[in-house]
Design a protein around this nucleic acid. Structure first.
Lengths: 215, 215
DNA sequence: ATTATCTATAGATCTATAGATAATGC
DNA sequence: ATTATCTATAGATCTATAGATAATGC
């Protein structure tokens, strides 16, 4: 379910066979993501991860060096999947007037589908060592950058009023966060609205922001 | 620094002297909040909390029953302080045209000041037992309700276009979240904007939302 | 011979409590 | 006599590794 960067990450392994490393790490990530969602990172033990991944605790430590490494692999895989979803929406969107709305809709659906994963990022990024933390934040910036790209393209095509660079960046971050909001306020929102109504509401607001900052 | 509800919470204690319980628990909360911000809840030990609070580990457990209780006391104290700040802004605001802007400004300043505390709530609410989790979410709803109140009052006075109840609730949640956004995206935002510019930008957007949903 | 995997456990915590001691009030 | 506080530790983990075993390729 969760995809992983094919490139070897900075995480050391004792295993020589690169293909095997990729495969086992995928097992490990798939097992860990569910355990982390269920019980949180700290309450999940490395033994549980090994068992759920179908390998022994000894083998687990051939593919990672510390428990933190597993958390990093999980966060990175989640971001890769989000980025893939948003990137696909970006490429698919034509340069029509409502293509911003289309990208927002697809992004919000990604958030809807990956609810638990996004929450996990919010909760556990802080548990990562500083080095990995920075990588995760860069992932977040890169995803937000896709929205900056959409907005810029539409402004160039004259389909959106032109706004300053600084405002444009903030609008892009607002789009990101309003998508996440559906996940971290779900305990309220999902009781009163469905994802379509929520999307329509926020889309209108975001289009309003573009107009608001134009003059 | 952090205030606590004067009412006795549902947390058991072995100590009879109620005033002493209040005092010691304040010591405990003040010590714990800083440790949790620094190292997270799980990496903080009960011994560290006791030491920072200036009591022994044995005494600590006379005032709380489990480590989770400390986390709950901390979350509750943080919400009490936020609520107090926002409530004060609400009462101070006159019924003028830009009183929404004034409340937003004061709320955003509360978020700015309590940056680390708000982040802590986002990260550790999930670590609470379900019972306490629900109380924390109710606190969050109550704070958002203050914004609903401001908006309703302004609409009644004719200072704001009238919008439907469902839209109004969503606008209130947007206000809440856009304030929090300053804290959980600070790693990006604070590098490019200051709190005043950020506040002006989002205030404009929020006023736009009210107009957007009026027709 | 080399690579991958497993079992068993060392070593290091950490929460929570039992039982001893000090302080307070009648 | 009662209440509050402390010290010392039981009991229960959990991460990470050492050393033994199985599988693979030449």
């Amino acid at each position: 379910m969760i995809r992983k960067k094919s490139e070897t990450d900075g995480i050391p392994t004792q295993i020589k066979n690169q293909a095997l490393v990729t495969q086992r790490r995928r097992q490990i990530v798939d097992a860990a993501v569910n355990l982390f969602i269920e019980n949180g990172f700290h309450k999940t033990t490395t033994r549980q991860i090994a068992r759920a991944a179908g390998i022994s605790i000894g083998s687990l430590y051939e593919y990672i060096a510390t428990k933190d490494d597993v958390l990093y692999l999980v966060c990175d895989a989640i971001h890769a999947e989000i980025e893939q979803g948003v990137g696909a929406a970006f490429n698919r969107a034509d340069k029509g007037e409502n293509s911003l709305a289309a990208v927002i809709r697809e992004y919000f659906m990604v958030c809807h589908r990956m609810n638990d994963h996004i929450l996990l990022i919010y909760q556990e990024t802080r548990s990562l060592p500083g080095k990995w933390q920075r990588v995760v934040l860069e992932n977040e910036i890169r995803i937000t950058g896709i929205f900056t790209g959409v907005l810029a393209r539409l402004m160039d095509a004259g389909d959106l009023p032109r706004i300053g660079r600084r405002q444009l960046d903030l609008v892009a971050h607002n789009i990101s966060v309003l998508g996440h909001m559906w996940t971290f306020r779900r305990w309220f929102l999902a009781n009163h609205y469905d994802i379509d109504e929520y999307t329509d509401f926020q889309t209108k607001n975001i289009l309003g922001m573009c107009r608001e900052n134009a003059s």
